[in-house]
Amino acid sequence: MSLGLDLLLAALMLGLAGWTVLGRDMFAAIAAFIAYGLLLGIVWVRVGALDVALTEAAVGGGVTGGLLIAAWARLRATAMVERKAGAGLAVLAALASLGVAVLLAAVVLHLPQPAPTLVPEAMANLAPTGLGNPVSATLMAWRALDTLLEKLVLLLALLGIWSVAPDAAWGARPAASVDRDGALTFLAQFLPPVGVVVGIYTVWTSADAPGGAFQGGTILAAMWLLAVRAGLADLPRVASRWLRLALVAGPAVFLAVGLAGFVLAGHFLAYPEAVAKPLIVLIEAPMILSIGVSLALMVAGPPVPKGDA
């Protein structure tokens, strides 16, 4: 029964992947890609990686899908959607993808049996972190540097998006396409209070159960964009001081706690055992704000000159 389900999932994934790559219509390819991300979430559930499944559904399906649709809408205005890549480029891309697939398959097939694992060590050292979820402990304690760099990459990506704005638009607001429809207004009034609670809960519960700042931040970003779309909230000017503060608050607090680790525990990003859990909560709280704001502004796109907003 479960083998049948896994085979069905694998076949669906391959079909959707093929549709994404071979589809003639760019919008259909994006829709297939979003479905692919959601299905990949189910695959992660099947292998027992619930934290990854949540991230995949939220970021791989949700945010990336939003980014792609926003990009498609922008390209459509310039008729770039019609332009197809040349045959040479297509062959090159196919060869590169094939190379990656073959390498991955080779690595997976040559894993030693049983596969090397750090799980017993992780479970044995879980108590000092004050967390119950080994995935969160890995992200926030043992490999905190990776997590810190991940958040910085998010800021760099947003700067990259802003940097394509024309000079005249610098400091202004991103374009918001507003749809003042009754049903949408209702949804945008009703859903955000629920979504904000669920988003914050997703971060809070990650101490002991699957969840995390990225997943929670994505939900907050979605609620904000929903309110913007319904015309109930405004996007901030990119020069706004409050916005800049919200963006750097997460990484700044993370960095400050990391530097304090030199004094308190002898290493960068080390936490004294007695206050490990409170310190992790202190890092996560501004982090969810920064992630939510960065993701929402990435989907909103670069600022536009005042008249066009």
């Binding site: 749809d179 429809d181 009754g182 049903a183 949408l184 209702f186 949804l187 859903l191 629920v194």
Partner: peptide
């Protein structure tokens, strides 16, 4: 309930 709410609202928007 959330799926119900979202699908009802979104289908209204899509139809319009």
């Amino acid at each position: 309930a959330l799926a119900l709410l979202a699908s009802a609202c979104v289908s209204q928007v899509a139809a319009r």
